[in-house]
Write a protein that binds this DNA or RNA. Structure first.
Lengths: 228, 228
DNA sequence: CCAAAAGTGTTTGCTCTACACCCATGG
DNA sequence: CCATGGGTGTAGAGCAAACACTTTTGG
């Protein structure tokens, strides 16, 4: 490493978030409209500068809260993008995160001082994005699908209590394929990551047992893939 | 994202590499001895500052070449570490990479101007490391094992031609367990990632067929895990 | 009693694992 | 001909996939 000098010019450092949620049976991504150049008027991932006294994860949580009002979310570091030229104004490195939030979380559309208009877009109907953000979204989706098969991350997209049919439909939406009801139920119950509650959800048809995620469940599943 | 100002104070940005190779039937990590404070005299991961005109990956390749003379290596981004306080001199974010290089690659021990003494250490005999580098090595090993099961990354640790017994022992060393010879051979051949050459390796006992990695093989294996 | 969604087991095929002997060469 | 490492197949177990009907409630 040699002489460790601080006199070099430094790139700027930001965090950007790919925030997923479920709306109307589709996976959606949160985007904000840029007010300033470059790419003014285009949509972009929410994000911002990392402050000097906060960790990267804290920066991600803070930016998410500032721009959307969401204070609790599952966050995971995705990848760090640093090609020169990805920002026309100069050298900007961004640490990308992906976030999962529960449906019906209220998004504050343009609350904080740093906030622009924030909107959900269903995947597949994304507008052109600023910077290299389309690449980031593509990679985030790939990672989400991959993680879903090996971990219990799908529960982050559900409210605290949910029916088995609801969680199955989460998996079907994200993976983009239909799953067998009996096999799915058997596997998710054998995986021991959820437990039944005493309550039922009453709607049309026969009431459904409500389950909750077991907080003590191991996040990473060692054995073979859980799902599908 | 709001007002995109460049007047904020900026953290410094480095890349650090966890370079793995095989030596004497053990997985080894390359470390350099620090000459300057802080942690002068301690061992650390090779790495250095990202220049303004190079990508992160280019920076990693350049630092690896400068400090070790190694110009060709498999490189993959691992994780970005940015806790305030990880460097006592100020805010330094590091993008960690892991690298795999073929055995018997000659390491230049202190060639370039930026180079300190570089040495291989077998895993399990690592000295205390500077900064948070022990965490980084631990995570890199975890990721290497994980990737080995789902991808064909193990070939990066082998010379261009190799015998089936040699690649099996790579897997055994990294995974830390013995594998069944027949099952291993069947699976690796069915995976279609290697092809036989016309040559044999002659040593003690019956000569062994040499194989080579198929460059057109898909790196990520979609189906079930390949190995073990 | 009808519509709507919840809930429930078994059979079949396939994949993974365990396991032992013969082969080719050099000395 | 002996020592050394290379190379090969099969049987059994466990896991995953396909598949259809009964149950409970509200209207």
């Amino acid at each position: 490493m040699g002489k460790f000098s601080y006199d070099y010019p430094r790139p700027a450092l930001t965090v950007d978030m790919v925030v997923f949620t479920l709306r109307e049976d589709r996976l959606n991504v949160l985007l904000v409209e840029r007010r300033d150049e470059p790419f003014a008027g285009m949509w972009a991932l929410p994000g911002g500068f990392v402050q000097m006294e906060e960790s990267l994860e804290e920066a991600a949580h803070r930016e998410l809260a500032e721009e959307t009002g969401v204070s609790k979310a599952y966050l995971e570091q995705l990848y760090t993008y640093g090609n020169p030229g990805r920002d026309p104004r100069g050298r900007v490195i961004t640490v990308a995160y992906f976030a999962l939030i529960q449906p019906d979380t209220i998004i504050r559309r343009g609350g904080g001082d740093d906030a622009a208009l924030a909107r959900w877009f269903p995947l597949g109907k994304l507008p052109p994005l600023a910077f290299d953000h389309t690449d980031i979204v593509t990679y985030a989706l790939c990672r989400l699908r991959y993680k879903l098969e090996y971990t219990a991350v799908g529960f982050e997209l559900l409210p605290d209590q949910f029916t088995l049919t609801e969680i199955q439909s989460i998996y079907e939406i994200i993976l983009g394929e239909r799953l067998d009801k009996r096999n799915f139920r058997r596997r998710i119950l054998e995986a021991n990551v959820i437990e039944p509650t005493a309550e039922l959800r009453i709607s049309e048809g026969r009431p459904a047992r409500l389950y909750r995620y077991r907080p003590d469940a191991v996040a990473e599943v060692k054995a073979r893939r859980l799902f599908p």
